[in-house]
Design a protein around this nucleic acid. Structure first.
Lengths: 198, 198
DNA sequence: TCTTTGATGTCAGCGACTGACATCGTCTGC
DNA sequence: GCAGACGATGTCAGTCGCTGACATCAAAGA
């Protein structure tokens, strides 16, 4: 066995989520988190850039999943449909069966403005990565950026609907379906307007 | 004359912008800002919740302008066109002739992640206000949220294009026109996809 | 066995932010 | 016109987030 308990990062993440839930984000000090994980404050900051980042796994695995899913979509599919498919696939791969955890985490984030800020940055990072992927696929600006933004917007709305549905897992909505329906709704809303688009 | 110099808030805002530009956000302390404004650090925090907020005028006047412009659009206009018109009107009212200032401010914000975070929160606040306004107009969910998100997305893309155009004011793009074109592009992108929207 | 390595601890310090209380012109009621 | 309330600001002490520099020490290799 090593000199230290294994999985320091995971212990810190878990301790932080627990404490944020128990007593709120602001009323939790980094020292407390570290103590619960059997480590020191200094070590916390070696793993996480700041007190908020502990709730947002680094390297943004969600972003990687989305880009990987997008890469699987044939290049001749229109950007808006490509991103729709990529997000639906990601929903099934990354969120299926994790609604309870997502709800917990989201309630912590919603309770503190600073955490919501960080969440928006992560989403913006995904948006930019999507735009870059579209450019790589030969989609010109501003369509690449707009398709990416549309995807992120739909994902955000669908995610909120998924999270805020009935608590009982049996009645819970399906994230992939929410995404599909929100894309359809967005298309309908866009088509409803004037084609001249004043 | 009063006991103190007038417009403490304005002096703090100006001092902060100057210092952030001169030496960067991180290398500027609140104490410095306050000193340049002829005040103390404590007073700074009576006007602004934190060091970033000084760059974002409170009560979000941009949000008020957008909502007011939206209220002027007839209720029978489709949401996507209503938000398009509202944003174009706001662009003319709030940004016409201010591209130089907007560029300066944006370069400060872009230089620091924390400031970008705050900017995203302000934009998200506008998005939510727009969604609420649509609900008030009788637009059902999720269309209300999606139209609001689409509007914010277009505004963000158009604003970036406007800001990053040629430096020379004579060749500068027009924000309202960028918005109009981005809405048209978004509609085209949405229409390009399958109607089944897999 | 000696050296190196890497995760962690220790310590000192800065700067953001807050609560409590003091100061002192100005305004208001009388 | 004066006492007292008021309100913007100052002063001070303290907590906490976060960082740099250096120490420690088991484990892994040479």
């Amino acid at each position: 066995m090593g000199r230290w308990q294994p999985n320091a990062r995971g212990r810190l993440e878990q301790a932080a989520l627990e404490l944020y839930r128990e007593q709120g984000f602001e009323r939790t000090t980094v020292k407390e988190i570290a103590a619960r994980a059997g480590l020191t404050e200094r070590t916390f900051f070696r793993y996480f850039a700041d007190k908020r980042e502990v709730l947002f796994p680094d390297a943004n695995p969600l972003q990687e999943l989305i880009l990987a899913a997008l890469a699987e979509v044939p290049a001749d599919v229109a950007p808006i449909d490509a991103v729709s498919r990529a997000l639906q696939a990601t929903a099934e791969r990354a969120f299926e069966g994790r609604r309870g955890f997502a709800r917990q985490r989201q309630s912590v984030i919603a309770a503190h403005e600073g955490l919501r800020e960080r969440e928006l940055v992560k989403l913006a990072s995904i948006t930019e990565a999507l735009a870059e992927a579209f450019r790589g696929r030969g989609v010109a600006e501003p369509r690449a950026s707009l398709a990416a933004e549309a995807g992120s917007a739909v994902f955000g709305v669908a995610f909120r609907r998924w999270i805020s549905g009935p608590e009982d897992p049996a009645d819970a909505p399906d994230l992939a379906r929410e995404i599909r329906e929100c894309f359809a709704e967005l298309k309908a809303a866009a088509a409803e307007g004037d084609t001249i688009s004043r």
